[in-house]
Amino acid sequence: MIDKSTQPESSLPANTEMAISIRELYKSFGDLHVLRGVDLDVPKGKNVVVLGRSGTGKSVLIKIISGLLTADRGIVKVLGTEVSRLNEKQWRELRLKIGFSFQNSALYDSMTVRENLEFPLVRNVKNLSRAEINKSVEEVLDSVGLLRTINQMPSELSGGQRKRIGIARTLIMNPEIMLYDEPTAGLDPTTCIEINELINEVKERYHTSSILITHDLTCAKMTGDKLAMLLDGKFVRQGTFDEVFASDEEQIRSFYNYNFTENKV
């Protein structure tokens, strides 16, 4: 475990407004202590990449932020709201501002792409005309470059297309925060780069603040304004890409080497 004092200071100004702020977050599953006092700040309008090995609790972290899991202890503030005491209605209001892109896209199998995109819109925005719904769906599909797939079923789409549609489905609600769970997992390198570019485009176009969970350092380098390395249930290093990987700590070096040297033929 790396001493916190060895962490470089973030390059962000001290008075930056935070979209997400986490303090001393703990989460266990039985005897398995996944998160052990996690602290993290996500400034507004920035992409924060959370790196770490499998099973270190990266996805658990964003599931707590979105209310899919509850923390054992700690403070999670999303857009200034402390989430631990929210009731069902308050969660609903907060979730309208959060977009969650799942690892496997989680598109609704029984619905077409159009119906997938309409689904959150028609249930959360009242009194929309058919023309307005169609316009929103077409606009957001166009923004991810997949307007032609509008009447296709999810089973007819490629992995990359499914990821894009999954992101489009969250964008239709104009979220202020985006949570990406392994956005490039299982995709070929070219599609990975396209998804990374889309993530940056989303940040610029929709002014979102994001947390990206990934093992992929190319994705981290392309999209992350700030990186946070999760080891043994705690963030051991936070900062820019170069700051995080300037460490001599063995686990961080091996993570870097695997992605950028040993893994390349």
């Binding site: 979105s66 899919l68 969650f100 989680a106 609600m173």
Partner: peptide, 20 residues
């Protein structure tokens, strides 16, 4: 089977996080 598969593929979670 349908709901089970929706649970496993996180489709139910996806509904929940989209405020549905």
């Amino acid at each position: 089977a349908e709901l089970g598969s929706m649970r496993v593929t996180e489709q139910i979670d996806a509904m929940e996080v989209s405020a549905v």
